[in-house]
């Protein structure tokens, strides 16, 4: 039996909220009343109960869970340094979702803002582990300075996807914006929709020959995350380009041939 905490956004409250101080592992020992009294110091020091309706109960889930309900487009830094358990957002989420996360999962049913899984403040490392799934589209700088873990975006991604990526994997079912994988050093970006890469930054595409494709695509949870992308279709031919050569990077960009 694990605890499931559900926060439902008060409809009367529309101001942006920075929830970077909210950690699932730190909420688990608290009662429902105690959770409601948790203060958000980076947000005019209000109590959580003033912004959300709080519900806490035991559930059959194998991992601790934090659910967010209501209009969360103004909720930023959700899952900051998240490391254990599952966070689920029933709708859209604001900027910096999953910033500096190191483990666990974050699932967003709707869209996410800018800097998904990115670094914050003076940190040089963004997402450093775990699984971040967005069923909708995301803003700019998703996967910025990503070092480990996996980001799945079923919809479209904005500009500078995977910029300065160090390692890890980003999968996008839809289209991507400008400056894709700018200054990428290592890591993998998998694109459901082909793009024209800049020739002086990325190598010409060659056909992938590796059993790793099967390991990568034939995961049941991946098909559930990207239901309309057909990425796991075994008839797909995948082409890979390496870069960003501007920084001597050997990261990979996979595109369907």
């Amino acid at each position: 039996m694990m605890k499931t905490i559900t926060l439902t956004r008060n409809q009367t409250c529309e101001e942006p909220i920075d929830v970077s101080s909210l950690r699932l592992d730190q909420l688990l020992p608290l009662s429902e009343t105690e959770i409601a009294k948790v203060r958000l110091p980076s947000c005019r020091n209000v109590e959580l109960g003033e912004l959300f309706q709080v519900e806490s109960r035991s559930s059959e889930s194998a991992v601790p869970r934090l659910n967010l309900r209501g209009d969360c487009r103004g909720v930023h830094h959700l899952g900051h340094q998240h490391r254990e358990g599952a966070i689920h957002v029933a709708g859209d989420i604001g900027n910096y979702c999953g910033d500096c996360m190191t483990g666990g999962t974050i699932t967003v049913d709707g869209n996410a803002g800018d800097h998904l899984g990115g670094p914050t403040g003076t940190r040089s490392i963004g997402m450093n582990g775990g699984l971040l799934t967005v069923q909708g589209s995301v803003g700019d700088f998703a996967g910025h300075r990503m070092r480990r873990g996996e980001i799945r975006i079923a919809g479209n991604a904005g500009d500078s996807l995977a910029a300065w990526q160090v390692a890890g994997t980003v999968i996008v079912g839809g289209t991507v914006g400008r400056h894709l994988a700018y200054a990428m050093r290592r890591g993998t970006v998998v694109l459901g929709t082909p793009v024209q890469l800049t020739a002086n930054r990325f190598t010409a595409a060659v056909e992938m020959k590796t059993p790793f494709q099967h390991l990568f695509f034939h995961r049941s949870d991946l098909a559930n995350s990207l239901p309309d992308s057909n990425l796991a279709d075994s008839t797909n031919t995948w082409l890979v380009s390496r870069g960003d050569r501007a920084v001597n990077g050997i990261g990979e960009i996979w595109q369907r041939g």
């Binding site: 194998a62 991992v63 999962t105 775990g130 290592r186 995961r219 949870d221 990979e252």
Partner: peptide, 19 residues
Amino acid sequence: ISKQIPHTRPDGTQETIRY
């Protein structure tokens, strides 16, 4: 290239395998 692939176990927990 090192790749850590998250897998969901039947009990719903996550396991990461490194290849």
